[in-house]
């Protein structure tokens, strides 16, 4: 007998009455989700920017130290930052090593935890959100949902696909519980609400 059948049969030997699926609880409502998003983002070590248009965002970013200092960067957001690497010509993610900064589109933000949903489909290479040393995510104005329960109402996977919530910069507290920012992924995470 193959292992799949053996496992399913072993599980079926315990015949349980079906327990019902519960309704989801009503989640908290923040009066000003965008403000809550900014607060949550700061609490997880992120940096918050608010810009009316790409030009304003570009000048705000110029004041962000890792952006100003960045030797090599890529941007997938028109009018914000520059691309020193032709992403359409690359198929090997290892070539992203050495990038100092990436400006990427975020689909929406989550007020309760400062997370931004980044869709795999918007990235020519998946590694773009984690290999560059610093990260900026640009989220369209009005695209901040209240909680993760609201977030999953906006997400669908049909067939293949990747997506990630990014909440602040990469971090660890594995040495004596001291928080250190910049474990393996981005050393800083700036989120800009644009529009």
């Amino acid at each position: 007998m193959d292992s799949k059948r053996a496992i399913l049969e072993a599980l079926r030997r315990t015949d349980l009455p079906p327990a019902p699926l519960p309704p989801y609880p009503a989640p908290v409502r923040f009066a000003d989700p965008e403000r809550q998003f900014a607060e949550s983002l700061l609490s997880v070590g992120g940096r918050y920017l608010r810009a009316a248009d790409a030009a304003q965002l570009a000048s705000q970013l110029a004041a962000v130290e890792p952006f100003a200092r960045a030797g090599r960067m890529v941007s997938l957001v028109p009018g914000v930052g520059r691309s020193d690497l032709d992403l359409s010509a690359i198929s090997d993610p290892h070539q992203l090593e050495g990038l100092d900064f990436a400006v990427l589109p975020g689909a929406f933000g989550v007020a309760e935890n400062g997370a931004v949903w980044v869709e795999g489909a918007s990235l020519p290479l998946r590694a773009l959100f984690v290999v560059p040393q610093h990260l900026a995510l640009v989220v369209p104005a009005g695209a901040v949902v209240q909680t993760m329960q609201d977030a999953y109402e906006r997400i669908a996977f049909r067939g293949a696909g990747f997506g990630v919530f990014v909440s602040g910069p990469s971090k660890t507290a594995d040495i004596e519980q001291s928080l250190v920012i910049g474990a393996h992924g981005a050393r800083s995470c700036t989120v800009a609400i644009l529009g």
């Binding site: 997880v44 935890n113 997370a115 696909g161 990630v164 919530f165 990014v166 507290a173 992924g185």
Partner: peptide, 17 residues
């Protein structure tokens, strides 16, 4: 860990390209 979210919550459906 008392954080509002883990930094990365990654959803994998199928392999990368």
């Amino acid at each position: 860990t008392g954080q509002p979210a883990t930094t990365y919550t990654s959803h994998f459906h199928g392999p990368m390209k």
